[in-house]
Design a protein around this nucleic acid. Structure first.
Lengths: 229, 229
DNA sequence: GTTTTAATGGTAATAAGTACACTAATTGGA
DNA sequence: TCCAATTAGTGTACTTATTACCATTAAAAC
């Protein structure tokens, strides 16, 4: 039903599509689904859905993501609007893209299978429908920009992580390598890591200490931290 | 007309609303209109309109801005989507906000009058409809972030400008003051200003040289310039 | 005790940022 | 014509980040 003063204007469908990044300890990944519905059945795409009349756009994005991943507290922010006229092969649809970061872990496997979803290495992305590859590209750039100034990297790591894992993550984000000492020095100097008395023993004999990201401490220091990395 | 596979989904109206900044040499301003149409007649709002079925969202924003300002080459970029369910008092409308920078100059006065538009000092913004003040706030923050890394400030200045004008602009954007020598040195060191042999004589007896922004030179150096200011 | 990876300190060189004060050019008016 | 007033224009020393490079010890598993 259209509002009175606006009755002569066109309405369109609004999609919310999420670019979901994850990190497996070595590589950055994006979560895609193989569509088992129309249109573009059997092709790869981002996770998405339509905004309903009775929900906000942000709520729609959250709803869709929760439905498709089974996860409820996902880091998520609006990325951009994609509004080209023929971007969707099946009709006029304007998409609002969302940028999401999740902690990959094992027990979500069933959900992934249920929805035909798969994690893809960022440089092995398959052909995708519509302008989804462009969305992914924009999201990747956003990740680099954002991760430089804010501590969003921790959203991709388990609660407890080692310094090596943290460094691997940033190296994956920026597709480069950092000097270990400089990296450690810098990240520690921010004063937002909390060292645990517990070691990760899988990847080395010596074992490396786990750390936590101290969010409260970060909040306190936030105004002094212009650059995260 | 809805596309077949999507026929069970809701459609909505899409507005494009532009936050337009200008600089009068001293202060940053935003361009608002006093609405002479429904809804919310006689209240202040951003310039906006609706996306038509036969145009892209970006095109709609450009069209609306051109109609309302009479200007055709305006710096413009997408800012954000505002999609709360009751944001518009007259119905469900999702807004895509655009960020625009224009060079204030005299000969657009007629257009301003025609559309009931007025430039407002940023700390004297009147009450605005819907969530338009929030949009303005987001745009202001975006201006600060963006101006730090890219030379968008020149979009707000006349083609020929003095170093003082340039400094005043950045001081207005960041609501602070800079040391004149440091500012000049930094901006000159970027190598994108072109000094003219012509002086502005209105504001001082000595007169100060005009400069141009050398866009081509900037393009060449772009990759080396991480931070503009 | 051999092997493996973690953890750590230092330093030198470079680049970026900050603080600070005087002279130059010009005009208008005495 | 000269003085006063006004804004433009400029250099240097100091501090703080950033980067690059190098090497050794520590802990634990086998």
């Amino acid at each position: 039903m259209k509002a009175e003063p606006y009755k002569n204007y066109d309405t369109v469908l609004i999609a919310v599509d999420s670019i979901i990044f994850g990190f497996d300890g070595v590589k950055l990944k994006a979560l895609l689904i193989k569509r088992n519905f129309e249109p573009e059945t059997n092709k790869w795409s981002l996770m998405g859905g339509f905004v309903r009349a009775d929900e906000s756009v942000d709520d729609a994005a959250t709803r869709v993501l929760t439905q498709l991943t089974g996860l409820s507290d996902i880091y998520m922010e609006q990325l951009a609007c994609f509004g080209d006229i023929n971007r969707d092969s099946a009709g006029r649809v304007i998409a609002i893209a969302y940028f999401a970061l999740i902690k990959i872990d094992d027990h979500s496997d069933e959900v992934l299978q249920q929805f035909n979803a798969r994690w893809f290495d960022l440089n092995k992305i398959p052909k995708m429908i519509f302008d989804h590859k462009k969305m992914l590209q924009v999201a990747r750039e956003h990740l680099q920009v954002k991760a430089a100034s804010q501590p969003i990297g921790f959203e991709l790591l388990p609660k407890k992580f080692t310094l090596s894992q943290l460094q691997n993550l940033y190296e994956a984000i920026y597709e480069t390598s950092f000097d270990k000492r400089n990296f450690t020095r810098k990240i520690k100097s921010l004063g937002v890591l909390q060292k645990l008395n517990e070691k990760e023993k899988e990847t080395s004999r010596k074992g490396s200490f786990y750390y936590l990201f101290d969010k409260q401490q970060y909040k306190k220091l936030e105004k002094d931290i212009k650059k995260f990395i």
